[in-house]
Design a binder for these strands. Structure first.
Length: 507
RNA sequence: GCGCCUCUAGCUCAAUUUGGCAGAGCGACGGACUCUUAAUCCGCAGGUUCGGGGUUCAAGUCCCCGGAGGCGCACCA
């Protein structure tokens, strides 16, 4: 009975498709509604195998050979090649592709099979054969329309290539293009492998609030939202850092969180307003321990997921195997300036060096900020790495512990690969009084108009007063890590649905 | 925010250095075809050339304003 209904559905699908992509409500809604109401479409389909399994099991079959084995598969029609009394269709499921081969004499409802369209979801069953040309196929005995495609999927060979359309209609991009499927699958594997890497080392995965009364943990402009029942503004988190360290205070000695953070800043090929960060905290460890951990994590991901530690990023070949080069911020900046730089370097010399690097100083900038700016302008993008850049000024590191050999610096490092910051880590500041002083300095900058500066977080200071053991913390931008491993040029390629400007309402 | 570039049929793209009837392929629709691989062949339909204004006998094309997007810079991860 179902197939009679389908014959009508199919026709409607094609009518809808002709109008489809132009958005106007007419074609879409009339087409779509009828699909939903049609009682002929099945609720489930029982498969016996999938494309990749069948290909593996029948690798040895000879061209023209016909097996008696009967299998059923389901997937999306990628191509149809009707040819009179026979017809071929390429079916894709999540494992791969397999050909459906229909014959008028052997396939029930052959005429309907021959009228399948690109994008239709079908289930089909029949014997496994190899065609005379050697293509593994299912000689279809019966098939079912699972869902007709009511909209065009673009050019059958090229799909859609318009960059904006690819991100706006990611379902079409994923359907039509191999690369986004590969990249998003790799992303899933990177996240999963990172979890198991950390769990094997005794880290406990936790979840901390995304709605913060005070945004903290990073220098960034937050999104503001409002809770009605509490009648209070809340901020989408810019980092989970402070809550994670409070868990360490509470006795979780090794914790991590992989989650979304939100920063109300510009959008670029390397920045999305929401992105996924890994943060981990390890008690009784210092930043040197995390240098090793970071090297191991990144190189083991590369080996496990790519089979190599050599990746190409931005046209640069990067060797990810440990150990990585280690240097200090002061050494890099001194090299760029051509003279020895320290926090005692006269301000005029630093300002001049920053100007030479193409940056502008602000009156509120101290020596530490100026040195960091010089580094970012003159050094960072030229570092192929991986390189561990150590020992940042206190002024630009409000949550990091002072360096054991120089209290004007902190025990903080960043990892730079292919000119981009991948990770940021430090020995955590444990002294509540120092933390309060640093917060107050931030708050002063905030009052002076720095929208990225932190506010004083009393809850966090109180937590430190209960006692934070010596602890080291690490943050890694997972999107950037996936970009590195996938060789992706844009962060949008590694995010399923990147932030786009909403389409203005029609009319 | 600034600079450069892009926008034509559902999709991918043409439309002469120097303005002259808006076209093709794919897809859709109708038909032929028993081993195809982006099948092939015949036929048919499909357009606010991103929007608005201007110059001109005539604008997809030239000029101005606006919109959206991409890239670079700036800010950041």
């Amino acid at each position: 009975m179902a197939y009679l209904a389908w014959a009508q559905v199919g026709v409607r699908a094609r009518q809808a498709r002709a109008l489809s992509d132009g958005e106007p409500a007419g074609g879409r809604s009339s087409g779509g509604r009828q699909f939903c109401e049609d009682p002929g479409l099945p609720y489930r389909y029982e498969r016996s195998s999938d494309a990749a399994t069948l290909a593996r099991e029948h690798a040895g079959m000879a061209a023209g050979e016909e097996s008696a084995e009967r299998e059923s598969v389901a997937g999306r029609v990628m191509l149809v090649r009707p040819q009179g009394r026979i017809a071929f269709a390429t079916l894709r499921d999540s494992s791969g592709e397999i050909q459906l081969f229909a014959k008028a004499g052997e396939t029930e409802r052959f005429d309907e099979f021959a009228r399948l369209s690109i994008g239709d979801w079908v289930g089909a069953s029949g014997r496994i054969v190899k065609t005379r040309k050697g293509e593994l196929s299912i000689l279809v005995e019966s098939f079912e329309m699972l869902a007709p495609a009511g909209r065009s999927f673009g050019d059958k060979w090229r799909g859609i290539t318009d960059v904006e359309l690819r991100y706006r209609r990611r379902e079409v991009d994923l359907w039509a293009n191999e690369e986004p499927r590969r990249v998003l699958t790799l992303r899933s594997n990177v996240i999963a492998a990172t979890r198991s890497f950390l769990q094997e080392r005794g880290f406990v995965e936790v979840e901390t609030p995304m709605l913060h009364p005070i945004p903290g943990g990073a220098l960034a402009r937050p999104f503001v939202t409002h809770h009605n029942a509490l009648d209070t503004d809340l901020y989408l988190r810019v980092a989970p850092e402070l809550y994670l360290k409070r868990l360490v205070v509470g006795g979780f000695e090794r914790v991590f969180e992989i989650g979304r953070v939100f920063r109300n800043e510009g959008i670029s090929p390397r920045h999305n307003p929401e992105f996924t960060i890994l943060e981990l905290y390890q008690a009784y460890a210092d930043y040197g321990d995390l240098m090793t951990l970071t090297e191991e994590l990144v190189s083991s991901l590369a080996v496990g997921l790519l089979g190599t530690t050599s990746v190409i990023c931005d046209g640069r070949t990067v060797e990810l195997s440990a150990p990585w080069e280690r240097t200090t911020l002061m050494k890099l900046v001194s090299g760029a300036c051509g003279f020895e730089v320290s926090l005692d370097t006269p301000r005029e010399r630093l300002e001049e060096a920053l100007r030479n690097a193409g940056g502008l100083s602000r009156a509120s900038d101290g020596a530490g900020k100026l040195i960091l700016e010089i580094y970012e302008k003159a050094c960072e993008s030229g570092l192929t790495g991986p390189v561990i850049v150590k020992d940042f000024p206190v002024e630009v590191s409000p949550l990091a512990r002072r360096h054991r050999d120089n209290p004007a610096l902190t025990e903080r490092f960043e990892v730079v690969i292919a000119g981009r910051e991948l990770a940021n880590a430090f020995s955590e500041l444990t002294d509540p009084d120092d933390q309060r002083a640093r917060f107050e300095k931030q708050a002063a900058a905030r009052a002076a108009g720095d929208v990225e500066a932190m506010a004083v977080d009393e809850d966090y200071i109180r937590a430190l007063e209960y006692g934070l053991p010596p602890t080291a913390g690490l943050g890694i931008g997972m999107d950037r890590l996936v970009m590195l491993l996938a060789g992706a040029a844009s962060i949008r390629d590694v995010i399923a649905f990147p932030t786009l400007r909403p389409v203005p309402p029609a009319g």
